[in-house]
Structures are given as C-alpha cells and as structure tokens.
Design a protein around this nucleic acid. Structure first.
Length: 470
RNA sequence: GGCCCCAUCGUCUAGUGGUUAGGACACAGGCCUCUCAAGCCUGGAACGGGGGUUCAAAUCCCCCUGGGGUCACCA
C-alpha cells in the first residue's frame, strides 16, 4: 500500500479551462504536492471535430497563470495511438473484445426498442460470437461486458458504489474508422502512466465501471478513485456562460490574483477547520482528500471578490505593483509619472480599497494622468464659489510645507482650518476633487504627498481658475 | 424514465450520539472617520419531511421529497 502517488489532470482541448476543471486540477495538484507525488497533465485531444490548437495553448496558458506546474506532460492522446491499438489487439486476442459489424443505425434501433419496453437501452451483443462475418465488412471493436455480477467502484469519498453489470453496455472501444474511444483511452493511459489516484468530477462516476472493466480485460488492477463534487451556478444548475465568467483566463482579465482564485476554488468543497484564507503553501501543507465535501457547491462571486481583496491586502507590495503597472500601461498611462517609492505608496494606500486589480487601477488612475479629469457632479457639489477662499489659502499652506510629508500637510491644514473656523471635512473634499477629479481617494494628506507638491499645486490652481471662471 | 451521487443559515462550511448547532461571505445596525475603504462591535438567519435504533440523533438505519450527474462509433 506504499505505492508512489501519481495523479493526472486530463482536460480535453475542446474549450477553455473553466472553473470546474481548474478546481479538479487543483485538487490533483495539491494532493500530489502534499504527498510528494507526481502530477501529470494529459490532454485528451482525440475529438477531431472540436479539438483545437488554440484551446490547447489557452489551457496551458491558464495553468501558467495559476502557477500550476506539472511533473510530466503535457501528454497528448493523439500521440499515443499505437498504444491504444496495441491494447485493443491484446483484448481482441484474449477475447475480452470482439468485432461488431452492426451499423450505428441498427444499434440505435435496439436502444429505441429497449427504451420502449422500459428496459435499459443498450447494444444487445448480437455480434459477440459471430465468426461468419464478412471480413471485408467494416467493423468496430466492442468490450465484452459480463452479463451478470456487479462492478464495484471503491471511491475514497463515496465509499463503495455498486453497478450491476447487466446495466452496462458492450461499449465501443475502437470505432469503425479505427479511432479509439474515450473510456478506453483513459483506462489504457492510466495504466500506462501508472496512475495511483484518479481524482475527477462526480460526472465521471458512471464512467468508472466501464473503465474498471477495461482494467479487468487487460489484467490490471484499477487505481484508487475519488469523485469530487461539482460546481453549480446560483440557480443550482450546472455552471455555464449564463452565470457569467467561467473560463479561468477571464478571471485573470477581471483582475483576480491567481492565489486568491486558487484559495476560493479550493475552499469550495474542501475545508480546514474555520480557516478561510490560505497561502499556496498552507494548502499544500494541509490538503487532504478526507476533508473534501461530497455535495455540490454553488459558486459565489461575492465571496471570490472578498477572497481576492484579502489576498490583495496581504500580498507583497512589489508583486502587486508590477501587476498594477501592467494595467496602467494597458490604459495608456505611464507608471513613471511617479517614483517607484511613490508607486509603492499608492499600492499601500489603495490595497484596502480594491477588490480586484482593475479596481486598484481605477483608484490609481488619477495619479498617472497628466491633468485631472473632473467628475461633473463632484465639481458641482464641492467646487463652489464659497470655497475659493479657503482653497486658495490651503494652496498656499501646502506650498509652504517642507519637507512634504503627510504630517507636515496635516499641520498646514490645521492652521488653515483654525483660521477659517472650518471643519476638515469642509476643506478636504474640495481639495480632493481638485487633485483627483472625484470624491473618493485615500486620505487627503497621503494623497497629496504621493501625487507630489508640484502636481498638487498645479491641480489646485486649475480648480481655482475653474471656480473663478463662470 | 433506468442507473448513480448528494442533502446544516440565502451561499461556502464546522460538526462524526450528549454543543446555547460554531465560523466565513452576503445582508442590517452601530463605532471609528477628511471621502471611500479597511478595522472593530452587534443582530437576524440552518439541521428538507416522516418513520425507526437509542436513556439521548444534525450525527446511525429505512422511506419520501428535493437537487445534481449519467445513459453515444463526444470527451
């Protein structure tokens, strides 16, 4: 029982990596890292119709973003065709597979009939013992499924799940065109890759007995299985585009941190006491299949947002800044408008105010613009004629602050306030609108200092002339 | 419909026979306060129903109900 842990994540490149797939990949990856095992990536690209190279690349890109590295692979099933052919040949020779010359139409007819009679729709096995078939007739290969008995899936999570063999079909393992089928390839690959644990979505539970039958036919012992719960939309329906973003890369665009995204996804169906926020290392250290939940989980965008903010607040400033700069450049803004020290200050001031990197960029934008883009309503409400005086005096006070620090600015403000007999709120908002264009920003003293004395004065002058103009 | 899985606040979950059923998100109220956040405090909110087993059941068993999955020469 001391076998080496070897797990695999096996997406098909018929679409983007979505949340559900990512979560399955995560559980596999964390299990491997926790146990010191091997994580393998295998792309199931045998669907000629729907597989594309673009999706293949996008899937790898998604893993790159998530920071999941694979110890082996990516393997591609299209590069392993000889192996499936070899396995099929061995099964044919052993009599655990047979040639079937029935056409899809004929099989469909059988199913219709069985369904009409209220029985399990399945192929009736009429080609099982035919030795008289015309050798030139096209044929597919079917697995010879036992007529009686049962196939038991020993699931690490669900316990033993029993399937009656008579419910199972003689499934096609090699198509008439020679292409091997999914359930066959999976089993052959998992045998070849010496997979010890198959951790995958619950939707595969009913495929499992079919795959176990292939293991049996090939004389191999099946791996351990763990079928994890699925992710549902807020309407408890399977997650789809209707529920908003589902592709992993979309979350990158929206400004989620990979560690936060991982944190949220892993917590969906897995728990460790009352802890909500985890670093990657903490998950590796504490991950266990035993703590996985059996029931389906509803995706909650608000909690994802909260998780993201938690990671933004605790993240390393330099890394966050690099990500912020990327987004500023995408908005045609030049990060070098501020010194690196000031930029780090911007991150510190804004990290408690942003749930995503996009919001971080929104809040930082006014620092990196040449001038100010005024918000109409803010101007109307706060840059009124009566504040011209106090604002002008605040301008002079600010001009005299040396060195230009938040404490210094604060002291200068206090002097003006006292002379004017005003409350800070009455002065801070006009100044804020003057230098940011809007009514929301970090503390006014910090904001002035990060923006710098020169640029602050320029902006206040601009606001002053705006007030005096009309 | 057959087969299979699942079932604690709106949501994510803790709980493994004896708890005032805990935490988190969200929500509501308050404190703090130069705006917005963050932070702190408070509040409402759950064991789907019915039978058993037991001195005792959210925890074990059965039925029902509800939700999900799956029934291809797709993966």
């Amino acid at each position: 029982m001391n076998e080496a842990v070897r797990v695999r994540f096996a997406p098909s490149n018929t679409g983007h990596l979505h949340m559900g797939g990512a979560r399955t990949a995560l559980f596999n990856w964390f299990f491997a890292r926790h146990t010191g095992g091997t994580a393998i990536l295998r792309v199931e690209d045998t669907d000629q119709e729907r597989s594309t190279e673009a999706y293949y690349d996008a899937i790898l890109e998604a893993f790159d973003w998530l920071g999941l590295d694979w110890d082996e692979g990516p393997y591609r099933q299209t590069e392993r065709m000889e192996m499936y052919a070899g396995a099929a040949r061995r099964m044919l020779e052993a009599g655990t597979a047979y040639r079937c010359t029935c056409t899809p139409d004929e099989v469909e007819e059988m199913r219709q009939k069985a369904r009409a009679e209220g029985k399990t729709p399945k192929y009736d096995g009429r080609c099982r013992d035919r030795y008289d078939a015309d050798p030139t007739e096209p044929f597919c290969l079917r697995l010879r499924t036992p007529d009686e008995g049962e196939t038991v899936v020993n699931d690490l999570l669900a316990g033993s799940v029993t399937f009656q063999n008579d419910q199972l079909d003689d499934m096609v393992i090699v198509r008439t065109n020679g292409a091997p089928t999914y359930n066959f390839c999976v089993a052959v690959d998992d045998i070849d890759m010496r997979i010890s644990h198959v951790i995958r979505g619950n939707d595969h539970l009913s495929n499992t007995p079919k795959q176990i039958l292939v293991y049996n036919a090939l004389g191999e012992a099946p791996p351990r299985f763990a079928h994890i719960s699925m992710i549902l939309g807020s309407d408890k329906k399977r997650l789809s585009k209707r529920h908003g973003a589902t592709s992993v890369l979309e979350f990158r665009e929206q400004g989620y941190l990979p560690d936060a995204f991982i944190n949220y996804l892993v917590r969906l169906g897995w728990s460790f006491g009352d802890q909500e926020i985890f670093t990657r290392e903490e998950i590796i250290r504490n991950f266990s299949i035993d703590n996985l939940n059996l029931s389906a989980a509803v995706f909650n965008p608000k909690k994802l947002l909260w998780t993201n903010q938690e990671h933004i607040m605790s993240g390393e400033a330099g890394g966050l800044l690099a990500l912020l700069e990327e987004r500023l450049r995408a908005r045609d803004l030049d990060p070098d408008m501020l010194t690196r020290e000031a930029r780090l200050g911007v991150v510190e001031e804004l990290r408690t105010r942003a749930k995503t990197l996009e919001e971080l960029a929104d809040g930082a934008t006014f620092f990196f613009r040449q001038g100010v883009e005024f918000d109409e309503k803010a101007v109307k409400k706060f840059l009124k004629p009566e504040v011209a005086g106090p604002l002008a005096r605040a301008r002079e006070a600010i001009a005299g602050v040396e060195p230009f620090s938040p404490e210094g600015v604060k002291t200068a403000f206090e002097r003006v306030l006292e002379a004017e007999g005003m409350k800070l709120g009455k002065l801070a908002q006009p100044v804020r609108v003057a230098i940011t264009g809007g009514t929301v920003s970090p503390g006014i003293f910090e904001t002035l200092c990060l923006l710098g004395k020169e640029r602050s004065l320029e902006r206040i002058d601009k606001a002053l002339s705006l007030i005096n103009q009309p």
